[in-house]
């Protein structure tokens, strides 16, 4: 795997508290990578290690195979969860200030910012005071400040928190657009819906340790893989008799449109699915049998509770 970022055995502790305990992970180039975990698990600390805000006590962080240097911050764009702007500045000035801190010269910074301001339709706000901005507008300005220097690695800490659905969608489109143009994106979030929607890889951090890493599809397959939904016309008793010892019925069945019932079953790994289908097909007017993938939300909760 071509990894843009490698974290090797990183540990970090604050006064009397271990924030990261021997964490390793690899972020594939061009991926949208989800960094998941409950509050206080160590996500933000890990991001701060990657962005060189704090130094790890043990372990290494490699960007493109080389240990991180101070210069690398120009290749990283970071939008923290807690984001602020200088209230007394003008919007354009503020964006220029951040862009120039990222190493752009004045002309280049202005050219790119004007482009982004047009794109996110906030061009009229260039000369207004930051304190007059609505929350959504301010978030757009922050987003622009994060990406204006076209970094190859983008890190968003809870990017959708506080965004209205329209802006959240706009932001999602822009982030995926940046990936199209070659950037790698790391998300830190506990919004599982957004993870399923856009992340292709994840790492789950709990209690300062990496407890689950891999591609989303694979994780869902391994975590689930034996739960099915059956659509049929049999009564509960008929259904139970038909399925006999082939599978376990999970919970109550429920009626759905067209006189069909839906029942959830778990088919043990060593059981042949075709036998189950055959048995059901015979006695229950089987209409459909589909695999149920566990939601990332389930996986998250099960992983954190240690029941995965």
């Amino acid at each position: 795997m071509d990894a843009i970022l490698k974290i090797e055995n990183v540990s970090k502790s604050y006064t009397g508290h271990k924030a990261l305990d021997d964490v390793s992970l690899e972020v594939p180039r061009g991926a949208v990578y989800g960094l998941l975990g409950p509050n206080g698990a160590g996500k933000t600390t890990l991001i701060r290690v990657i962005t060189r805000i704090t130094m790890a006590e043990k372990g290494r962080v490699l960007l493109d195979g080389k240990p991180l240097t101070a210069e690398d911050v120009y290749h990283i764009g970071y939008m923290p969860e807690e984001r602020g702007l200088y209230k007394k500045m003008r919007v354009g000035e503020q964006a220029m200030f951040f862009a120039r801190l990222k190493g752009l010269d004045k002309q280049e910074a202005e050219r790119r910012l004007r482009h982004w301001f047009d794109r996110l339709s906030i061009a009229d706000w260039w000369n207004r005071k930051v304190e007059d901005l609505s929350k959504g507008m301010a978030q757009k300005v922050q987003f622009i400040s994060t990406v204006v220097h076209e970094p190859k690695l983008l890190i968003f800490d809870e990017p959708f928190s506080g965004f209205d659905p329209i802006n959240a969608n706009l932001l999602k489109e822009e982030i995926l657009g940046l990936r199209e143009r070659g950037a790698t994106v790391i998300f830190s979030t506990h919004n599982m819906a957004s993870v399923e929607e856009i992340c292709d890889h994840i790492t789950l951090i709990n209690k300062s340790r990496n407890i689950l890493s891999g591609s989303v599809a694979e994780i869902r397959r391994t975590a689930g893989g034996n739960n099915f939904e059956v659509l049929h016309r049999a009564t509960d008793e008929e259904f139970a008799a038909a399925i006999a010892s082939h599978a376990i019925i999970l919970g109550e069945s429920r009626g759905v449109v067209g006189g069909y019932r839906e029942t959830r079953i778990a088919i043990p790994k060593d059981e042949d699915v075709r036998l189950v289908i055959a048995a059901l097909n015979d006695k229950c007017q089987l209409r459909a049998l589909r695999e149920v993938m566990p939601s990332m939300n389930d996986i998250f909760i099960r992983a954190v509770n240690g029941t995965l």
């Binding site: 984001r83 602020g84 702007l85 801190l101």
Partner: peptide
Amino acid sequence: ASRVIDVMVTSCT
């Protein structure tokens, strides 16, 4: 208090 610091520190030490 305004949390600008979180944005600032990725661009400068």
